[in-house]
Design a protein around this nucleic acid. Structure first.
Lengths: 339, 339
DNA sequence: CACGATGTCTGCATCGTTGCAGAGCGGTTA
DNA sequence: TAACCGCTCTGCAACGATGCAGACATCGTG
């Protein structure tokens, strides 16, 4: 059966539509007698407001959309939890979508009639979208970007300092006395990528310690997944001069590396120390537990939502801001050991 | 600036609103001359349709909502990916929300003016909601339930056979020659829970093998998280007669158990064999890798979306169906060893 | 030339809600 | 008694789109 509308309730209660609306929303003063009649009719008809109509009238939906490449990458799942919480604090429901890390899916978001129009704002963690594509989109929903990707100043944008994070991770390995430090996760073929910033940080740390940069120790990976980490670690150990430490560009690569090393009979951290970035919970329980650099996901989420809400609600849209979130080094078993 | 509407485009192109709408949607035949004029105006004004208005008129949004307790529980993240894919195949965008496993958040979904009205349908994996609460909700969006929770016949519902899954897992441990088999994850205080079905399967397997049931070996846990698995495993090993195998009610508990055992100096699988349920990718890369019972997430997602779409689009709503998805035993290192 | 058939295009009503302006009414004040 | 106030309540218009019925022009046919 059709849902009851304000009109149905009004005719049943013998009042005007407007009065029913007032009762439902608690707007204007309504006499007790009428209110009672209306409320009876409301429950009898099991009325519930049509939010689409309300949204149309009010020009907003109260919903934000968070788009990440892959939800089953724990970092994004943990981030999503934080963003959902931050959204709630600002009175917005956050719905999450993923693009499967598929460029065409990412571009779909920018389409004329993307479903995103239904949302008041968009928090996007892009993987392959270029700044230009984003600027030229046929879609004016307010956007805040996550991650180090594209910062040409057109959009507000929240991220940790990836160069510093990578430097900290590498420096930590160096502080253990390791000298042949490998890196897994470079992506030299993309522009503006997180990966390249992390490579820069890695090299800075080497340089600062006076260690040589050996390109053979830097393994690119197409994506940041466990399996690729395992493969890369195995390949590294097969080198004539294998490394004594590995910096992985994220924790998932590191989890794979731990596994690959173990299968190769390499002891961690005794033979090879391993560190990642992301601070996912999984690394706390692995064997050995994983040292990592933890981005402050709470802070990232809060800053992103605050920026977005400012864009949405602000009379004068604030200038696009580049916001830095904090990160912390978290040493665990995978880098245990005296200097 | 205000977004351009059909009216704006129409007045600029000197045609009727209706004609612009026809051009945008490719509905009626439009002469080339007019079409060109309209399309010029469309691009000049950067028109994009207001989906809220369209949805209001058409009475549908083309979006489904998937609600899970916690996105950072890998099983749910992996399931979400499958549901999103299945939704796309049917022409729906799937947006994901989580309740933080918070009963009040779950109940919020059923509220009069829950944001869910914006969606054409709801796929819900409830944690604490009772069947009655669901039936009495003030919200008529079509629903399909996931997981073994509440099957009083009011709703369509997709799940694996949890009793059989637990039986298979336990039987696998027994087939290794283990005789003191513990269980982590019972939840005796809730009604109709997945956990209780798994306990039933566990006991069936013991009984079938003629093994005694020892309540001391069954550890309840409030939730299915790594830390609780670690704690429970540690406690089990402190018993006067510790177990030689542990069946964990999900993989996350098992990951915690592996870690707890390792910290206690227990070797897996030599001293204690471990198995979980869920088939999360994390278990493939842990040390040791985790034996598990894998629910067919693709199938669960496909069946759930198909049921929901049938509810939404079907002229005659099909009767609520109970659908069983397949599961498979996947032995890995954590249960390696001769019988 | 009259007629109907076809092909384009338009205006009105409508989806369900809320904003706005004001109607009706009882009571207070001068 | 007139003027005014405040409290309730109402009707109309509007949000931006689409469904529908029909207007109008053009064309072919008898």
């Amino acid at each position: 059966m059709r849902d009851a509308t304000l009109r149905d309730v009004a005719s049943r209660a013998g009042v005007s539509i407007r009065t029913v609306s007032n009762v439902v929303n608690g707007y204007a003063p309504v006499s007790d007698a009428l209110r009672a009649k209306v409320e009876t009719a409301l429950t009898e008809l099991d009325y519930r407001p049509n939010l689409i109509a309300r949204n149309l009238k009010q020009g907003r939906s109260g919903m934000l959309c968070l788009v990440v490449p892959e939800l089953d990458v724990p970092y994004f799942a943990e981030l999503a939890r934080a963003v959902i919480a931050a959204g709630r604090r600002h009175g917005y429901a956050v719905m999450v979508d993923q693009t499967d890390a598929d460029p065409s899916r990412e571009r779909e978001l920018l389409t004329r009639n993307s479903r995103l129009t239904l949302f008041d704002g968009l928090i996007l963690s892009p993987l392959t979208l270029s700044a230009q594509e984003l600027r030229e989109r046929g879609n004016k929903t307010p956007v805040v970007l996550l991650g180090e990707h594209l910062f040409d100043g057109s959009f507000s944008h929240v991220a940790i300092d990836n160069v510093a994070a990578a430097r900290d991770a590498t420096a930590h390995l160096i502080s253990l006395g390791r000298t042949r430090i490998a890196a897994i996760g470079d992506q030299p073929y993309r522009t503006g990528e997180t990966a390249q910033l992390r490579t820069a940080g890695y090299r800075q740390a080497l340089e600062h310690a006076g260690l040589p940069y050996d390109p053979a120790l830097v393994r690119p990976t197409e994506r940041f997944h466990r399996r690729l980490g395992a493969t890369a670690a195995t390949a590294l150990m097969a080198l004539p001069h294998p490394p004594d430490a590995i910096f992985c560009y994220n924790d998932l690569l590191a989890m794979g590396a731990l596994r690959g090393l173990r299968s190769a009979g390499v002891r961690v951290p005794d033979d090879v120390a391993v560190i990642g970035i992301d601070g996912i919970e999984e690394g706390e329980f692995s064997t050995p537990s994983l040292s990592t650099v933890v981005p402050d996901k709470q802070q990232i989420a809060t800053l992103a939502v605050e920026s977005l809400v400012a864009l949405i609600e602000g009379g004068t849209p604030p200038a696009p801001a580049e916001v830095r979130a904090a990160h912390t080094l978290l040493p665990r078993e995978s880098t245990l050991g005296a200097i």
